[in-house]
C-alpha cells in the first residue's frame, strides 16, 4: 500500500497530463491525490452544496454534508459503471440530507439562510461552460412541467416527503399526487432523453 502511495501521480502540473481529466480519471486518483479531490470539488461543490442547502436549509449543515459527500469519493463509494458522477453525487447528497432531516427532526425547524454567496470560479472555463449547459438544459426541461408536477417532484426529492405527506400538505388526493409525480418524471425524462443518451449526464 505504501508503495502505491509512493508511485502516485505527481501533483505538480505535468505538461503531458491531460489539461482536463475526466471525472472518472479523477475519481481513480482521488484516494492518492489531493489535487484530484480538489478538482472534483471545484467541479461539483456548488452542485452538491445547492442540493444540500435546498434540502437542509441551513448553511452550516449544508457545508457539513458537502464535505461528507466528497469524502465518500475518497472512500471509493462511486462506481462509474453505475452511472455518472453527477447522478451519484446528487442521489447521495439527497439521501444523506433526508437521513439528516429525519434523524434530527429539523423538517419543521428550518431557518432561512438561502442568501446568495459569492460564487467561486469553477476549475476551468470548459468545466464552467459544461456546467452552465447542464443547468440550461435542465431548467428548460423543468419549465415544460406544470407547477404541480414540479412541486411534487421537488418536495419528494429534496425533502423526502412521502406522497401521502405531500397529499396532506397540498390538500389533494393521494392519487392526484401520484399522477403528478409520475407524469412529471416521465415528461422530464422525455425532455432530457437526448442528453441522457449522448453523454450520460
Amino acid at each position: 500500500m505504501l508503495a502505491s502511495f509512493r508511485q502516485r501521480p505527481n501533483l505538480i502540473p505535468d505538461p503531458d497530463r491531460s489539461p482536463t481529466p475526466s471525472d472518472e480519471q479523477l475519481v481513480q486518483q482521488v484516494q492518492h491525490d489531493a489535487a484530484a479531490l480538489g478538482l472534483l470539488y471545484d467541479r461539483y461543490a456548488r452542485f452538491v452544496y445547492t442540493t444540500a442547502l435546498r434540502s437542509l436549509r441551513d448553511v452550516a449543515s449544508a457545508e457539513d454534508l458537502t464535505q461528507d459527500v466528497f469524502l465518500s469519493l475518497q472512500r471509493g463509494g462511486y462506481d462509474p459503471r453505475r452511472g455518472s458522477l453527477a447522478s451519484y453525487l446528487s442521489l447521495l447528497t439527497r439521501s444523506r440530507a433526508i437521513d439528516r432531516l429525519r434523524s434530527q427532526s429539523t423538517r419543521h425547524k428550518y431557518t432561512t439562510q438561502l442568501a446568495q454567496q459569492p460564487q467561486r470560479p469553477l476549475a476551468t472555463p470548459m468545466d464552467y461552460a459544461h456546467q452552465q449547459e447542464r443547468h440550461a438544459r435542465v431548467r428548460e426541461a423543468l419549465d415544460q412541467l406544470s407547477s404541480d408536477q414540479r412541486q411534487v417532484l421537488e418536495l419528494s426529492y429534496y425533502e423526502g416527503q412521502s406522497q401521502s405527506e405531500i397529499a396532506t400538505h397540498l390538500g389533494v388526493p393521494l392519487g392526484t399526487v401520484k399522477s403528478w409525480a409520475r407524469r412529471g418524471l416521465l415528461k422530464l425524462r422525455s425532455q432530457l432523453q437526448a442528453q441522457l443518451s449522448e453523454e450520460q449526464l
Partner: peptide
C-alpha cells in the same frame, strides 16, 4: 438519472 438532475 433524470431525477438526479433536478438540482441543476
Amino acid at each position: 438519472a433524470t431525477l438526479s438532475l433536478l438540482p441543476y
